[in-house]
């Protein structure tokens, strides 16, 4: 390809919480915030996977925008004025997290991911010491039919990281979501036991990207399920060398 035909992203300047920063036009607000040491909470987002803006924790205020915008998916614009820690945002984030905790049966003390869970850590980070909404206590299953892994739906926050990593990185698309609303459930193949899935390659990527203890390796006791960060490396290795 003729190099001159390639579009080179230009650099723009914007403000985050009153501080001037510069960024490439193809960057998202989240990328730029992180580069500049500004914390924006996320749960569904994971570097290396397509952002979907589902958890709504990364919402930020942008001056002139009619609505709050998800930082994970919003491209920066020249002269944008972004606010990440307004009173409203702090309130909304806590409420969203409360809704998540109340939705399913999150019992941190006996969870394989106790101490390594992004949901648990986020609650502490955002200063959440109790949940005001009534717990819904749904009855949910555990599928341990796979040789090496298990899925405990009681701990799922429907971030769809497993769905995306399986589709986008592994290329198997074993995982997907069934049902609607609070009845949504991540499933393997056409909702058959994981162990009988013909598309699953048993690569374990889904287990590694799961932010909670939903997907875990068998034989791990409470607090023993630690995760490896492999996606940034994989993404780097797969990048086309120019």
């Amino acid at each position: 390809m003729n190099p001159s035909a390639q579009k080179v992203p230009s650099v723009k300047t914007l403000q985050i919480n009153g501080k001037d920063v510069s960024a490439r036009e193809d960057q998202t607000l989240l990328d730029v915030a992180r580069e500049n040491g500004v914390f924006i909470p996320t749960l569904c987002n994971l570097d290396g996977l397509t952002p979907i803006g589902a958890c709504r924790l990364c919402l930020v205020e942008v001056k002139g925008a009619r609505r709050l915008l998800p930082a994970c998916i919003t491209q920066i614009q020249d002269n944008m004025e972004v606010f990440t820690e307004t009173e409203t945002l702090v309130k909304y984030r806590k409420m969203i997290l409360e809704l998540l905790f109340a939705e399913r049966n999150h019992v941190c003390s006996v969870c394989v991911s106790n101490g390594h869970c992004e949901l648990q850590a986020m609650a502490q980070k955002l200063g959440l010491d109790h949940i005001r909404y009534p717990y819904l206590y749904p009855k949910l299953a555990v599928d341990a039919s796979h040789d090496r892994f298990a899925v405990d739906h009681n701990r799922c926050i429907l971030c769809q990281r497993c769905v995306r990593v399986c589709d986008e990185i592994e290329g198997a698309h074993t995982w997907d979501v069934q049902g609607r609303g609070t009845a949504s459930l991540v499933i393997t193949d056409l909702n058959q036991p994981w162990g009988t899935s013909e598309s699953c390659t048993s690569c374990g990527k889904c287990v590694q990207v799961c932010p909670t203890g939903t997907l875990f390796e068998k034989g791990r006791a409470s607090g023993e399920m630690t995760k490896r960060e492999f996606l940034p490396y994989l993404t780097l290795m797969r990048e086309e060398r120019v």
Binding site: C55, R56, L99, L100, A102, E103, Y133, Q160, G181, T182
Partner: peptide, 14 residues
């Protein structure tokens, strides 16, 4: 609710 985003999925339920 399709169940994708948290506020709509759980908020409407609550």
């Amino acid at each position: 609710s399709c169940g994708k985003c948290v506020p709509c999925r759980v908020g409407t339920k609550q």
